[in-house]
């Protein structure tokens, strides 16, 4: 397609593309800029765009508030814990379905997918009551289990689509060359499976990090992650826009980086292999 695109065409379309994408990105940009303002500047009308006293004060305040750290570490524990647990359960299953499919494999996969489509409000009441009665309310363990189960179908599906692409002949070739099962796993399977496992891991960390139904409903303080911490800024009397911006920037920064790194795998993971 590198045909007769004139310079003018490229310049014109580039200007449009930059303008459109900057518009879409602007809320994030504006949030980051606001996080460096004093609260007074953040409220200023007309707004100040670049020429104000840039300050790190908000970040300092957010950092020194110990509850920020508690929420951030909860976010890390919940998203990584639930994803690792899901991988542990899903890898054998996806592996078996990709390499030794039976007549029922397809139905099993689709059934697993359908569990993801159940709206969480449908089970909010019993889960809430069960958690309340077993002391799991506001506990990290309870939430790790819940987020793990919620994302398990996606994890299995993603792994399945990756594992399916590993050529089976190569295993037989290795076996013919006298590789032991252990060698087979370490030298042949693992290198081919790891990229798929890694991108599954990244996507599910993102999903769990941003999960805001169960975390808002089942946690209050002890196990509350950043979604809940940010939600606390919704109270009308607390108009701390600069601090809200700083806390928000910190809350989305790691996920933005991971997301940007894994954007290509994202399509595949979120469409269950329907679009590649």
């Amino acid at each position: 397609m590198a045909r007769e695109h004139t310079k003018t065409y490229r310049a014109g379309i580039s200007v449009i593309a930059w303008a459109a994408s900057l518009t879409l990105f602007f809320p994030i940009l504006w949030m980051v800029v606001t996080s460096f303002k004093s609260e007074l500047d953040a409220f200023a009308s007309p707004p100040v765009f670049l020429f104000f006293d840039w300050t790190l004060e908000n970040y300092h305040i957010v950092q020194t508030r110990s509850d920020y750290f508690r929420h951030a570490s909860n976010s890390v524990i919940l998203s990584c814990g639930s994803t690792l647990l899901a991988l542990l359960i899903a890898i054998p299953a996806a592996w078996a379905m990709a390499f030794a499919p039976s007549k029922r494999t397809k139905d099993t996969l689709l059934w697993m997918l359908s569990t993801k489509m159940m709206p969480p409000v449908g089970v909010l009441v019993p889960i809430y009551l069960l958690y309340r009665d077993t002391g799991l309310l506001d506990s990290r363990m309870g939430l790790v289990a819940l987020l793990c189960l919620g994302n398990l179908p996606i994890v299995i599906w993603m792994l399945f689509t990756y594992f399916k692409e590993i050529p089976k002949d190569i295993l037989e070739a290795a076996r013919m060359d006298g590789a032991t099962t252990l060698k087979e796993i370490v030298y042949v399977l693992a290198p081919m499976a790891l990229p798929g496992i890694a991108s599954t891991l990244l996507l599910n960390v993102i999903l769990a990090w941003n999960e805001a139904f169960w975390t808002l409903n089942l946690t209050t303080s002890k196990a509350a992650p950043l979604t809940v911490f940010i939600a606390a800024y919704s109270s009308p009397e607390g108009l701390f826009w600069a601090k809200l911006s700083a806390a928000s920037t910190l809350a989305i920064a790691p996920i933005l980086v991971i997301g940007w790194l894994s954007q290509r795998q994202l399509v595949r993971g979120l469409t269950f292999g329907a679009v590649k």
């Binding site: 990090w209 941003n210 805001a212 979604t227 928000s248 989305i252 997301g259 940007w260």
Partner: peptide, 16 residues
């Protein structure tokens, strides 16, 4: 820039 909003957690985007 275009893909970024998708990674913003719902509570953050709503309050911003």
């Amino acid at each position: 820039m275009v893909i970024a909003p998708f990674f913003v957690m719902p509570t953050v985007s709503a309050l911003i």
